[in-house]
Write a protein that binds this DNA or RNA. Structure first.
Lengths: 305, 305
DNA sequence: GATGCGAATTGTCCAGGACAAATACGATGA
DNA sequence: TCATCGTATTTGTCCTGGACAATTCGCATC
C-alpha cells in the first residue's frame, strides 16, 4: 500500500512531491493547464514521471522561489531555464563580493567539513562574536544561498554550512558567563518559518551586550508567543523572517501580535522578508541589519533608564 | 493563496495534515467511511476542523504508529483512546521511571528557562555526556512529548525544552578535543523529517568514542545522501526517525538507500519510527536504543580491525 | 512615484469512484 | 499446538474534472 519509487527511471507522484516540494495537486493542475509535466502511465493509469522531467521540475521550483511566474517558466525548455538561472547569478554575485566566501565555497563543494569548521573558527576568533555574525555570517548566508540556487553547491553542502555555523554560534553563546540582566528578550519565529539561523544570530549579537535572550526555536503559534511573553515578564519579543516568508503574512501577523501584546512589551522584527515593510508596521521596530539590533538595544536602555 | 489557519479554534485541511501527519486524502476518506473526523464547513464548503478533533486525530496517529488498526480506533471515543495510550505508556514509564522529569516538567510549565538550563546542566555534569543522553534525555523526550499530547505543557514549553537540550549537547560535543579517527559517519534525516535532536544525540554518543561524525542536518534528499557518502569516503550513513515519521516510507527509503550505496558503506537507522521494522530491513543496522549505537560502533571496529 | 481597480493567473480544495497492498481470518496439514 | 496458505476485508493512495478565492498583473488615475 505504498507507491513512491517504482522503477529506477520513473517516480510516482508521491515521490515527486517529496523530491521537488511541489504538491500533488499542483503537479496535476500544471499537467492539465500547461501540458507539463507529461508523465507516462502504469498499467492502472497512475502517473510515472521520468527522471528528466523531475530534474526540470526542480529547476522550475528554484525559479519559482525567485519570484518567476509559473506560466512563464513551466512551458519553457530546459535550456531556457538554465539560462534564466545563470542571469540571476550575475546580479547577486556583483552585489556581495565577500572575502571569506571565496575560501569557503570550494570547501563546501568538496564537503570538507573539518576545513570548513577550521576556517570559520579562525575568522570567529579574529573578529569576535558580534563582528563575525554581522560582517561574515550574514553575507555568507546570502552567498551560500545563491550558490545553491545556481547549482554550484548541493543540498549537503548547504546543510554542512548551516550545521557548522549553528555549532559555532551555539558554542560561542554558551561559553559566555556572567550575569544576564535586562532587558529580557523572547526570540522565535512564526509558524511556517523554519529557519532558526536568524534567531541564533540575533542571540549572538545581543547576549554579549548583557541582554537576557530566551529562544523558543522556530514556529511558535501567535497565541503561545503572547502567553509566554506576558507570563515570563519579557520586555521585548523579537521575530525573525527569512526571504522565503511571504511578506504580506508577516505584516499581518506582526500587527496582530502587536495588538495582542501589552504596550510595555516591544516587538522587534528582522530578516530578509522585512525589507521595505517599515511603513506598514507603525508600532513594530523593524531591524534592517544585524547591527541595528545592537542600536535598538541601546535605544531601549536609554528609554528605560 | 494560502489557507492553513483560519480561526484560532478551527484549522483548514492543509493545517491538519501538517499538524497530524495524516494526508488530506486519508482525512477525507476517514470522514466518508467512519464518520470521523466530522469538520464543519466554511462559507465555501471547505472543511474546518475544530481543535478538539485535531487533538483526537493526534491521539489516533500515535496509536496507529503502535500498530492499532484504524477501524478499531477512529470510531472510538477520546476517553477510550487515552486509556489505550495509557496502557502503552505504562510499559514505557515503568521501564524508565525517570527522576529528572518530575523536577523538569513544572519548570517547563512555568517557562522558567534559567532553571531548566541549570537543572539539565547539573545532571549532565554528574552523568557525563553519554549517560546523560541515553538515560536522561531519551526518556525526557518521551515524557515531554506525552505531556504536550495531554496538554500539560504548551508549545513554548516544548520549544524551550528542545532549545535547551540542543544548546547543552552542542556545547558538550564542541568542547571535545583530540583527534577524530574512524569510522567516518554521515548523520542526517530524510526529507519530511524535521527533528534534529535525534541526530545530535547520536553524535553525542559516538563522538566521545572517537568516531568522526559529520551531520548534514535534517531533510537531505536521497540522491544527495548517496553522493556525499561516496564523495566524502564515509564508512557509515546513519539516519534518524522521529515517531511522527511514517514507518512505511522510512522502510522504503532505507531499502532504496541501501541499494544505491556501495556495500562497503553501512546504513544505520534509529529512532521511534524504527520499532519493529527490523524484519523489513535485512541489510540495515536498526538501532533500537541509543546504547546500541555504541555497540554497533564496537562491532564495526571489530569487523574492520 | 504612489494608489486603486478590473482581469488574468494560480494553488488548493471538493466529490466520489477505483484499486492494489496490507492485514485479518479461517482452513488445512505437520 | 503451531506453522502455512488461500480468501475476504480493510485501508491508503490515486484518479478526473470542476470550482473558487487569493495573488498578481496591467493600466488608468491621482
Amino acid at each position: 500500500m505504498n507507491k513512491t519509487e517504482t522503477l529506477d527511471t520513473h517516480l510516482g507522484i508521491a515521490a515527486v512531491e517529496r523530491d521537488t516540494g511541489l504538491p500533488k495537486d499542483t503537479l496535476r493542475v500544471w499537467e492539465r493547464r500547461y501540458g507539463f509535466p507529461q508523465p507516462s502511465r502504469d498499467a492502472h493509469g497512475e502517473r510515472l514521471y521520468p527522471r528528466e522531467q523531475v530534474d526540470k521540475l526542480r529547476l522550475i521550483r528554484r525559479l519559482l522561489d525567485q519570484g518567476k511566474r509559473p506560466s512563464k517558466i513551466v512551458t519553457a525548455s530546459t535550456d531556457e531555464l538554465t539560462r534564466m538561472l545563470g542571469e540571476e547569478r550575475n546580479d547577486i554575485t556583483n552585489a556581495a563580493p565577500g572575502a571569506a566566501q571565496e575560501a569557503l565555497l570550494p570547501l563546501l563543494r568538496g564537503h570538507n567539513s573539518p576545513e570548513v569548521r577550521a576556517v570559520l573558527q579562525q575568522i570567529l576568533l579574529k573578529q569576535g562574536l558580534q563582528r563575525f555574525v554581522a560582517d561574515t555570517v550574514a553575507p555568507l548566508n546570502v552567498a551560500v544561498g545563491d550558490a545553491w540556487l545556481r547549482g554550484e553547491i548541493d543540498v549537503p553542502g548547504e546543510h554542512l554550512y548551516t550545521e557548522q555555523i549553528h555549532n559555532l554560534l551555539r558554542s560561542a553563546i554558551g561559553a559566555r558567563t556572567g550575569p544576564l540582566g535586562h532587558p529580557r528578550i523572547l526570540l522565535t519565529t512564526f509558524p511556517n518559518e523554519q529557519h532558526s539561523l536568524g534567531l541564533l544570530m540575533v542571540e549572538a549579537m545581543l547576549t554579549p551586550e548583557g541582554a537576557h535572550c530566551v529562544s523558543l526555536g522556530t514556529q511558535t503559534p501567535l497565541a503561545d508567543i503572547c502567553n509566554t511573553a506576558a507570563a515570563g515578564s519579557f520586555d521585548i519579543v523579537a521575530l525573525s523572517f527569512s526571504a522565503a516568508f511571504p511578506a504580506r503574512q508577516a505584516v499581518d501577523s506582526l500587527n496582530e501580535l502587536r495588538r495582542l501584546l501589552p504596550p510595555r512589551i516591544a516587538v522587534w522584527a528582522g530578516g530578509a522578508a522585512m525589507r521595505g515593510q517599515e511603513r506598514k508596521l507603525p508600532d513594530v521596530r523593524v531591524l534592517a541589519s544585524l547591527d541595528q539590533t545592537v542600536e535598538a538595544l541601546a535605544e531601549w536602555r536609554r528609554a528605560h533608564a
